[in-house]
Amino acid sequence: MDFFNIYLPVAGIEFNALLLVLIGFCVGVLGGFFGVGGGWIVTPALNIFGFHMAFAIGTDLANIFGQSIGATKKHHKMGNIDWKLGTISIVASIAGLEGGSQVVLLLEKAGDIGSIVRWCYLFLMIGLSSLMFYDYFSRNPKKAAGIHDQSKLAGQIPQREKATIADRLHRINIPPMISFPDSGIKSVSLWIVLAIFAFTGFLSGFLGVGGGFIRMPALVYLIGVPTSIAVGTDLMSVLFSGAYGCLTYSLKGRVEIIAAFIMLIGASIGAQIGATAVKYIKGYGIRLLFALMIAFAGCSIALEQIYKITGNEAYQGAAGIVLMGTAVTMTLIIVIRLMAGFRREQIMKM
């Protein structure tokens, strides 16, 4: 394997090119499928394998920018992008992001900010995955048990579905009201939409993350966007934030261009595969896989924190294994589901 080792002049280290392609491919598939940047996988992965944290973040952002171009184009072709909603999300997120970073600066002056940020990060991971698991198993029990439309079979009137958080938010009537036909939303207060994206932007700025994994569930559960449109629309925002991140980090000299270049080879291929897989997996399936991924990423963060307390390197190793294991397993699941869906489609065409 040493044959594939290359010297990276900006980071000043030797790195295995095959490993870079593999990391890129995994994050590309996950990014294209879930509509997230995947920084929370790539940054720690590069860091674990020897990159300085600053280079890991900068190189990851450059890669996110490159991989998002093709995936966004593919989601657009599938009708998965609500451009109007996406544009509003970018504007409101920037305002929220600025607010979040200002709070961080204020807290820094007061003292120990790191503990608050990390606590919030873990809380968010646990909260999001719990919400999505709860939603999957409570709102979809019939489908999970393989019983479809039992009320119709028995000749009964179907039970009225319980109002979701999004339904309740749509009922709040604060003008101006706005519609998102591409997402099937007839009327919602612009202020509600702005507030939601400002909040997700605030969390991104406060936690120092891209925010794709916060925005995607917010689009689904708070705004009521269909899952595949949430994925595409979120990816559009990721593309713009990735472009800005790539430029600003390379100005600061923190992008290792050779590594980003090699990683992008795997990521571009992976992103196209991930985006195509959305066609074959239903919305609830995407939500379940997303919840699983967030839960395992939360476990990895918890293990990393235990390592920092105890100093026992076994925990750090375990954190890396859980993180990379989750990324590789999820990638395999998505590719297998894509192949199964494609085969089913071919059989139906015959």
Partner: peptide
């Protein structure tokens, strides 16, 4: 860096798309 990533991302996505189309994995509005 920014231009190279944009150009390479577009070219690689285009090439991958061609390969996927050749394999029958073409996408349209869903």
């Amino acid at each position: 860096v920014t231009i190279v990533m944009a150009v390479l991302g577009t070219v690689l996505a285009f090439l991958t798309d061609l390969v996927l189309k050749a394999l029958g994995l073409e996408v349209s509005r869903i």
